[in-house]
Design a protein around this nucleic acid. Sequence first.
DNA 1: AAACTGCCATTAGGAAAGCTACTGCCATGA
DNA 2: TCATGGCAGTAGCTTTCCTAATGGCAGTTT
Lengths: 295, 295
Amino acid sequence: MMNLMHWRMVVAVADTGNITRAAERVGMTQSGASQALALIEETLGVQLFSRENRQTLPTAIGLPVIEQARTMLGALENIRSTVDAAKGIQRGTIRLASFPLVLTTFLPPLLRQFNRLYPGIQVVALEVSDDEVETLLSAGLVDVGVALNPAPARNGCRLGRDAWMAVLPGSHPLARRSSEEGISLAELVEQPFVLATGGCSTNARSLAADAGLQLLDVRAEVREWSSAFTLVRENIGVTLVPEMTLPANCQGLRVVPVTPRIDREFALVVAPDKEPTVAVRALLGMLAEHPLSVG
Amino acid sequence: MMNLMHWRMVVAVADTGNITRAAERVGMTQSGASQALALIEETLGVQLFSRENRQTLPTAIGLPVIEQARTMLGALENIRSTVDAAKGIQRGTIRLASFPLVLTTFLPPLLRQFNRLYPGIQVVALEVSDDEVETLLSAGLVDVGVALNPAPARNGCRLGRDAWMAVLPGSHPLARRSSEEGISLAELVEQPFVLATGGCSTNARSLAADAGLQLLDVRAEVREWSSAFTLVRENIGVTLVPEMTLPANCQGLRVVPVTPRIDREFALVVAPDKEPTVAVRALLGMLAEHPLSVG
DNA sequence: AAACTGCCATTAGGAAAGCTACTGCCATGA
DNA sequence: TCATGGCAGTAGCTTTCCTAATGGCAGTTT
């Protein structure tokens, strides 16, 4: 009953109408075949075949049983073929370039899930600054990279987004602004400013430049976002940071969105002119099916 | 791979996400479960589950495989239930009443086929004269009987038909009649006649009476059809017999259909007021699905 | 830290399943 | 009557496979 080989026998007998020939079809002795059949019939408590003089033909009960046996064996065949087809993505390596923030926020759950689904594929993550990603991609030094605001037609898959937020000391006059109102970039650049870059080329200064403005009163320029928050708390000035960098504890800080809203869109992208490997396709496919809940 | 118990393990692990619990669900040791899983994965050459810290979750390849495993087990379940449902018609007895001609022509292939499909059901055939069938049926002494020209609404299943044929010596004047023209009953009853009954109450004499005629010149009256043919060959007279009784060798005889054609319709019928048993339903069902090629 | 817990892999040993080789039986056909 | 084709039954052996016991690993609790 629990041995698929026996069911293969059942089907073979149904096909050939002959236990002996069925036996050699599945590579067994006639004796073994006879026993297998008898065992199944005994376990079911039902006669599946009637042994005629020259032929062994299915009984009325045998007919539907044989059909089900066929589906069982068919499913096994399906397993074999899907596995054979999928063996290509069993092993492999993906080199991934990302800048720090995304590497520590979006990527961990993603890579964890990916590693669960494709345990044989190793993902090597490179931490680089955001403007290096494209260089590494086109040089073929990495297979996939995290891009900021990629072209819509770009080959890849969306990771998530976050918005730039103004961070002010609680006592700052602009701190009364509601989240709905927001603070415009033009207002912000006039304030005493703590410039934080997070090591990214896209930062408050470049955003201002994009809008045709400039920071008028930079009181400090730091690399670590966390340093900026401390300085803002100390009333050195205001700052402008991506939402995701905000600390869990915003005590003493007022966070107001910039208006009009300025978003950063993250995506996993591949080199534009290269065919991605099976492994990379698996990664992008997984991301497309199960978008991250973050962002 | 060929052990369904192992596939049950695979599904159980997929369901519980835990080898240990899966093991106890299918009634095994954790060790056995682990080995079974490992064996399948090794045989397929593919990892189906990734052993996380707390959970054992399917890989990307594992997911479709598990689905197929489910259909395998589902098919096995179907086998179990169809067999359970069909066990009622495994054993049983059918008492069948038939008159000789049908018993030796229509019934043998039918019963042979039935015995192949339902080896456990014993068919006891009673040979009786045609007018006894209904008596036995309503007395409950038989389960099913062969009826001649049954009412259309009668519960049962058609067996076949044959036509009454005039049989003449080759030298007889009417022997020139083509098969298309035929011979009318009125013409026939005027000839010197060999009356054959085959033990049936429906015979040439009763047919003539039904048509408001009578046999005018009966030269012999025999029970066996074969006797009648011999007498016709000897030029004693003509006769009227069912088509099916004709011998294989019609040398010296001319066989012409009666016009208008008179048919006998055979059917397997059950007692009108009783619910047929499962076994009888099986017999009628088989007959309905595979009508006999005869007639 | 250290002990604990939940979960899995591994090993050895033994029981049972299952296959093979062989024999015998039965029906059919030459 | 013998030869043939087809199946069932038996003994014995191989292989599979399950259990029991042990150890390792990663969190968790004390």
